[in-house]
Amino acid sequence: MTEIPEDHPRHDSLVTRHRIEDGVDDGITSRQGLIAQGRGEAYDYLLGEETIPSADAAERAAAAQLLTADHPVVSVNGNVAALVPDALVALAAATGADLAVNLFNRTEERVERIADHLREHGASGVLGTKADARIPGLDHERATVDSDGIYDADVVLVPLEDGDRAAALAEMGKTELVIDLNPLSRSAQAASVPIIDNVVRAVPNITAHARDLSEAENAAREECIQEFDREAALRAAEERIRGGMSGGA
């Protein structure tokens, strides 16, 4: 990777772009993932490339949801695996969640590459390779899941936009925590907890909140969940983006 000076004004953005490029070279990320990364960067630019207060509140609520779940699962696609593998492993350790590979452009080779990549970064177990169940209502490979993974989960963290699966999981009665930089996307609109933030900030921040809440009483976690206002969070993010578009953010 080209050496990027620490003081470069686009340092963090350029680093994430190179991670996605490396993911494509390693057979982890699909080429379509390059386009998705660029789209996300555009929204992040309008958000000011920072975690806004409403997103931080959503991340804390997501941490509480994961900690109180009976079977929490973190869904992993190629972009997320390339961008934040260490952070995913840390989140799983902090919350007791399973990591499960789930792909739109699915091949068995790519699933295994992602699973191996996560193991190389410290994951003790990765689901998604058995593919012995399907999410109802989907006709593409996002429907392919493990029966003891996403299919069985009560709380699912979906880090990155995935509109039709988000709706299908909601139909199954699952609590969805969605990281998506576009508050108007189907994913964010379907989520119980929409997290309008960049995944490279959101995943570590959820982990930090989970570590803090792990010492709290169950009542405190439940209060955190009940006090979160999803509509207010979506509205705040949209207002921030529109302000950025008009030069106000």
Rank of each mutant, 00 (worst) to 15 (best):
E3C: 08
E3R: 13
E6V: 11
D25E: 14
D25W: 10
S30G: 13
Q32Y: 13
L34H: 08
G40H: 09
A42Q: 10
L47N: 05
T51K: 09
P53F: 02
A64K: 03
T68Q: 11
A69N: 06
D70R: 15
V74H: 05
V74S: 02
S75P: 07
G78V: 06
P85A: 07
A87R: 10
A90F: 04
L91P: 03
A92E: 13
A92I: 06
T95A: 07
L99I: 09
V101H: 08
V101A: 11
E108Q: 15
E109G: 07
E109H: 10
V111I: 12
E112T: 14
E112G: 03
H117D: 11
R119K: 10
H121T: 05
G122F: 09
G122P: 14
A123I: 05
L127F: 12
P136L: 05
L138N: 06
G149Y: 02
Y151H: 14
D152C: 06
A153I: 04
L157F: 01
E161A: 12
E161W: 00
D164C: 00
R165L: 12
A166S: 08
A167D: 13
L169A: 00
G173L: 03
E176G: 15
E176H: 07
V178M: 01
P183H: 07
L184P: 05
R186I: 12
S192R: 12
V193R: 00
I195L: 01
I196K: 01
R201G: 01
A202M: 01
A202T: 02
A202E: 00
P204W: 04
N205T: 14
S214L: 11
E217P: 12
N218G: 15
R221W: 04
E223C: 10
E227M: 07
R230E: 15
G243W: 08
G243Y: 09
G244W: 04
M245L: 14
G248Q: 15
